Simulated scan of single mutants.
Amino acid sequence: MSVVLKVEERATRPRSIRRSLREAGQVPAAINGNGLSHISISLDAAELEKAIRENGLNAVYNLELNGKKISTLLHTYELDTFSKAWIHAEFLAVDMNEEQEVEADLVLEGLPKGVKAGGIIEQNLYTVIVSATPDKLPERVEVDVTALEIGDSLTVKDIPASADFTIITDVEEQICAVVEAKAVVEPEEAGEAAEPEVINAKPAE
């Protein structure tokens, strides 16, 4: 998946220029890698958010700068803790024929047989590192769990091989397991509680 975003070169001084850009709805950003050395740019925040929402974080972002397109991946970004407004973004320029490593979400698909029998499923791993050419990088890796019985588990090595990407994460990492539901111990009814000892009670005659 790839998408085109128009960007503009920006000044880096004075430091207040970043605040001015954000107030104008722009994201201060930079491009590095593949022979490029920190090109300072800005782009429309709404357009970037829309592109990520529609294409995901692992899409190829073709940045159109001065009439040329640079193939990139969104490498890192920073959002304001409270407002979630964009603070900065870093794009990594890539060779479309060279494999890259990124993080992809692990998504469990289906309802395990063990859950139908009264068990519960516990997920222990939520992402994996994958390697592929930029155009083949997945946003998510789906794992079918429908066959799992109580006591069964899945590890990374159980994920079916893909022709598009390779999983780099340790194959012994456990993804999930179906376990027995823990019994809920009900508190004793008040009427069933042991009678309290009476101090200095008069003995029965």
Rank of each mutant, 00 (worst) to 15 (best):
R140H: 09
Q123L: 05
S42K: 00
L73Q: 08
D80E: 12
E101T: 15
S16K: 06
E186M: 12
A104R: 03
M96D: 01
G114D: 04
V128T: 09
H88D: 09
E49H: 01
K68C: 05
S131P: 04
T81E: 14
A30G: 04
E139P: 06
A93M: 02
L106E: 02
A190E: 15
I129A: 09
P112Q: 06
E192C: 04
N200C: 06
A24P: 03
A204E: 11
L57H: 09
G33D: 08
V156P: 00
D135W: 08
S20Q: 14
A193S: 06
V185Q: 10
D135A: 12
E47V: 07
S2G: 14
I52N: 01
G33I: 12
I17V: 15
E99W: 01
V179N: 07
R18E: 13
A161Q: 13
V102H: 02
I52M: 15
A59R: 04
V128F: 01
E186T: 10
V7C: 12
A29V: 07
L63C: 09
Y77S: 10
F82L: 15
N97P: 02
L65G: 08
H75N: 14
Y126F: 15
G67Q: 09
T169F: 05
V185S: 06
L57W: 11
Y77D: 06
Y61D: 01
P134W: 10
E54A: 13
V171M: 04
V102I: 15
T127P: 01
Y126C: 05
A204V: 14
E142Y: 10
T12F: 01
K157S: 14
R13A: 10
V107C: 05
D158I: 06
A51W: 02
A30H: 02
